[in-house]
Every structure is written in C-alpha cells, then in structure tokens.
Amino acid sequence: MLHIKCPYCGMRSQNEFAYGGDASVKRPELNKEISDSEWDNFVYLRKSLRGKHLEFWHHISGCRQWFKVQRDTATHEIFKTLKPNEDI
C-alpha cells in the first residue's frame, strides 16, 4: 500500500487516489502550427523510466485536486509531492 502525501490534505492511503500518468509530457501549445511528430510525441510516446518518475495523481476520493508525485518506479519510494504548477 502506497502512502501518498497530498499537497492539500496531507498523508493518505493509496485507495483515495487515481493515477494520471507521466507528468513530464508537455501538450503542444494551443493555436500553434503542430507537426504530426510533435503530436505523436505528446499522445503516444513515453520514456517509461525505471527509477525516478514524475507523474500526476488525482485525489479523487478526497479533495479532488490533481498534483505531481516524484516516485521510484522500481522501489515505489515517494521522494516529493508538488502542486501541478510547481516544478522539482
């Protein structure tokens, strides 16, 4: 069982959260000419790192806020949690 520290509510058990995927993926800017390969990169391609991974989680059964988690994908150690607009 993971214990995740929601930046808004504090430490809670994994059961309250939903996963939101790789947080390092950047959506191409709006109203800009986008090439097919830029769009591919955003929609389909993932680094899928072994080790430190920055990812989105959603406190779906709590405050319902999205936030970022830095977690080790091999050991599940959680290093840091951040609000969505914060960077490591």
């Binding site: 996963y19 790789d22 072994r50 994908t73 599940h76």
Partner: peptide, 13 residues
Amino acid sequence: DGYNSYAQRGNLP
C-alpha cells in the same frame, strides 16, 4: 496495479 512499475511484485489494494 495502476501506476508505472518495474517492481515485479504487487500491491494489496
């Protein structure tokens, strides 16, 4: 298990 993992072992929930 629902999140990226290379752990080769799972979680109870």
